[in-house]
Design a protein around this nucleic acid. Structure first.
Length: 827
DNA sequence: AGCACGCCGACT
DNA sequence: GTCGGCGTGCTC
């Protein structure tokens, strides 16, 4: 038997399966998805079995056998192996990178080298070496690393002995699993026999008597530590009992439950409204059809999407299938988790970035071994190792955090669609402000279906009115002489809330309000010496830092250029707002939520808790205050400057602004108190602002679609952005130009290099190379090339083919390529 | 990615 | 004469 194995080497040259013999002893164990240790050149590496065959094309005499099996059962299932192939092809990443993101990091094995005596006679030469003594005492192999650490002075002689063949090296793949083990005491297997011994113990072994009688009364397994503490005794007593075979002590794997300290009130399904029921029934029908259909649930904030999710999941579980729920990282709060845990109890696994490696591994195993049947998690939970998925829910579908920034730069929504096809599962995309791509796709009637997979819930559950939204024209404020960042209307409204002891949420878009240092005499701004970007000021550490490379320097006391003292930092918007609030309303209690105040673990949660307990009047923050929060006493939401995101040079700027404003407007008045929203802007007539104020999604989308059509942007085409970087600008210019020419040639040959405005079904335009908007990062210059295309073109493969002459070894490895398929931001 | 192999410069 | 620099190429 031959196994095709992807080895754990992140390089283009090794990015293909290698063939290995499967030793007889391992044959019953090796399956698709098995993780194995294999000899690769002089090393032993981790690898994943992606194929099994009888024969190999490769020279049979050169085939090596698999060295070891790393898990008793394969951590990856065949569907994920197939998905990894798709992922690597679509997102132009290596196969191993695609496989790695599917595994918890605890299963990323690394080679550990062992050293042992080979039993040669020349040992005499080293008879006096301390390390030889140590190795003799050690009965087998010892970790090389350990030996080197023990004898730092002897590296030379050890190396020499190795070369002479006196010592041998061997490698093994070691996991970082760190499974938490707990010593458990199991009650007597034969209580009758134990009872008979009890009397005898009473005299000579008082303590053993106490322990045994306790265990006979409470015949459940109990942690050794707990038992010892409870009966005020020591473990030797219990071990004595174990020696008499009256009880058993066993090491049991302990699953760390990050939510173990939390009590979850069980909840039961709520009655559905007419609208919810209709939607629910369509989802269930689609699940039964196993069509692999993607559906959009377009529901306004407060329309009760979550209850529909919960009941659909229940239905999915009833039919013996599993469900994945994706939630934006930022919304994955304990309250959010609670809603699922209280409905489905221990069947829920939770996955998010704040879990430790160990915790994440535990959750992952709960999924893999079937104890969990629902996973609630961020982006990467889309790879949960379920065997039969019935439903994948993606809440807040439009969120850009579903696209991963690092390689592989996948979009969880697109992976979900693909994975659902494999399982015949339904993808349910939920949002009050669906992305244009999703909305357009869901509006089409699929082949063979009666209606479009678009589900609408345009009304709030309890029939509360949507909050009143006021658009405030800041230009007028200025002409009336108000130079403050608060309009008089917002000021009055705030004052009123304070008097009524109601709460306010204030939103300030962060982008466009960076914290930079500028000299007011000469206009000098502090910028990173390694990147073309201004440094940001961190108040806590009083350092200037670069976001991209981590460079840090002291805050300047005077301008390095003109030596003026008029150099000052322009604080985060939120800091400035906080100061101004304190000036306008002395004694006002403000909670500021931004990167500075939420870096600590759980800081986010703590701040929100304080606010929900009404210990503050105002919650002031960036985007993060807009997401899914639900406070009954919030009756005013203010957006300080709606324009900051509007004016960004990004084709999605209007869409982002609309989404943000709509989200934040939904925060007000969700309960018995009527809510009010104030949006301050210098562009009051902008359609994104207008549509958000009127809660009018379709109006926005029509206008935006027209614009996108005119500019030829998604959803009317697809994009790929290729960024090339190099230390030397001349090399970069040369290679990038040749690459783009190569790409154009290939596209031409394929007959797709046609303007998008043409009437051809398949069209592709190649723009660039041009300097990237981030022209230099970490001392590397950056150029980019953007591909726009439409129709059935396998653009990723074209890019891969065009890159081939330029990667590793060939022309120059000084120029690095990074491919972003379906980029979220194009500047 | 590593690691070996291989071909050229400054030193015990 | 050797140690060691890092360019090139291979890993089933």
């Amino acid at each position: 038997m031959i196994a095709n194995i992807i080895v754990d080497v992140p390089s283009r040259q090794t990015d293909r399966p290698f063939d290995y013999k499967v030793p007889k002893s391992l044959q019953p164990w090796i399956e698709l998805g098995s993780r194995v240790g294999v000899p690769f050149g002089p090393r032993v590496l981790q690898g994943v079995v992606v194929g099994l065959a009888e024969e190999s094309e490769y020279d049979h005499s050169k085939l090596k056998p698999i060295k070891e099996l790393l898990d008793p059962e394969p951590p990856l299932l065949p569907d994920l192996i197939e998905l990894s192939k798709w992922l690597s092809e679509k997102y132009c990443c290596s196969r191993i990178a695609a496989l790695q993101i599917m595994l918890p990091s605890a299963l990323k094995g690394k080679e550990v080298k062992y050293i042992a005596l080979s039993g040669a006679e020349q040992e005499q030469a080293y008879a006096n070496s301390a390390w030889l003594q140590a190795l003799r005492q050690e009965d087998g192999a010892i970790k090389l690393e350990k030996l080197m650490a023990m004898f730092p002075e002897e590296h030379r002689s050890i190396k020499q002995a190795l070369q002479q063949g006196l010592l041998t090296l061997s490698g093994k793949v070691k996991d970082r699993t760190g499974i938490k083990q707990v010593r458990m005491v199991l009650p007597p297997a034969d209580p009758e026999a134990a009872r008979e011994q009890l009397a005898a113990l009473k005299k000579q072994a008082r303590k053993q008597y106490e322990v045994l009688s306790y265990l006979l009364e409470h015949p459940e397994p109990i942690a050794l530590a707990q038992l010892v503490a409870k009966l005020n005794t020591s473990s030797s007593v219990v071990q004595g009992l174990a020696g008499k075979e009256l009880v058993r002590i066993e090491d049991v794997e302990q699953k760390r439950d990050p939510y173990r300290h939390r009590q979850f009130e069980p909840s039961s399904p709520l009655p559905l409204t007419e609208l919810q029921r209709h939607v629910y029934e369509r989802i269930v029908k689609e699940m039964e059809r196993k069509s692999g259909q993607t559906m959009l649930l377009h529901g306004v904030t407060g329309s009760g999407k979550t209850e529909v999710y919960l009941q659909s999941i229940a239905q999915c579980l009833d039919s013996n299938r599993q469900a994945i729920v994706l939630v934006p990282e930022i919304s994955l709060t304990p309250q959010m988790v609670e809603r699922f845990k209280s409905r489905f109890g221990d069947a829920v696994a939770v996955m998010h970035s704040r879990l430790s490696d160990g915790e994440r591994y535990d959750e992952w195993r709960k999924i893999r071994h079937g104890q969990a049947r629902v996973v609630v998690g961020a982006r990467s939970a889309i790879f949960a190792p379920f065997s039969s998925i019935g439903l994948i829910i993606i809440d807040e579908e439009h969120e850009s955090s579903y696209k991963q920034d690092e390689t592989p730069k996948y979009h969880a929504r697109d992976v979900a669609v693909r994975r659902a096809k494999q399982h015949g599962a339904v993808v349910l995309l939920g949002s009050a402000t669906p992305s244009l791509e999703t909305f357009v796709a869901a509006s089409r009637i699929p082949k063979g279906a009666a209606e479009a997979p678009l589900l609408s819930m345009p009304e709030r559950v309890a029939g509360q009115a949507m909050p009143t939204v006021h658009i405030i024209d800041m230009r007028q404020e200025l002409t009336q002489g108000n130079r403050s960042m608060f309009s008089s209307a917002l000021y009055e409204a705030l004052k009123q809330r304070l008097e009524r002891q109601e709460q306010t949420v204030l939103l300030l878009n962060r982008r466009g309000y960076s914290t930079f240092v500028m000299c007011r005499s000469c206009g000098y701004t502090a910028s990173c010496p390694h990147c073309d970007i201004s440094l940001t000021y961190h108040q806590k550490t009083r350092l200037l830092r670069c976001h991209y490379c981590g460079h840090a320097e002291q805050e300047p006391k005077q301008c390095p250029q003109c030596e003026s003292e008029h150099i000052r930092f322009f604080g985060t918007g939120t800091q400035k707002v906080e100061e101004e609030l304190a000036k306008l309303f002395p004694g006002i209690r403000v909670i500021r939520m931004d990167v500075d105040t939420t870096t600590e673990k759980n800081a986010h949660e703590k701040l929100l808790k304080t606010f929900s307990e009404r210990k503050a009047d105002v919650l002031l923050g960036t985007q993060m205050v807009a997401k899914g929060l639900d406070f009954p006493y919030v009756t005013l939401v203010g957006v300080i400057a709606a324009d900051t995101t509007l004016n960004l040079p990004d084709f999605r700027a209007a869409e982002r602004t609309f989404q943000l404003l709509t989200q934040v407007a939904g925060r007000a008045g969700r309960h018995h108190l009527q809510g009010e929203v104030m949006i301050q802007t210098y562009n009051p007539e902008h359609y994104a602002v207008q549509a958000a104020a009127q809660h009018h999604y379709e109006q926005f989308i029509q206008q935006e679609l027209e614009l996108r059509m005119g500019m030829m942007y998604p959803p009317y085409c697809r994009l790929i952005c290729i960024t090339m970087s190099a230390e030397r600008l001349d090399q970069l210019a040369e290679v990038s130009t040749r690459f783009v020419n190569e790409l154009k040639e290939i596209a031409q040959y394929e007959g797709v290099l046609v303007p998008l405005q043409s009437r051809m079904a398949r069209a592709m335009e190649i723009l660039g190379p041009v300097a990237s908007p981030l022209a230099r990062i970490k001392d590397r210059y950056r150029y980019q090339c953007v591909i726009k295309y439409r129709g059935s073109i396998d653009a990723s493969t074209l890019v891969e083919r065009a890159m081939e002459p330029f990667v590793a070894g060939k022309t120059s490895k000084q120029v690095l390529f990074s491919v972003d398929v379906d980029p979220q931001v194009i500047v």
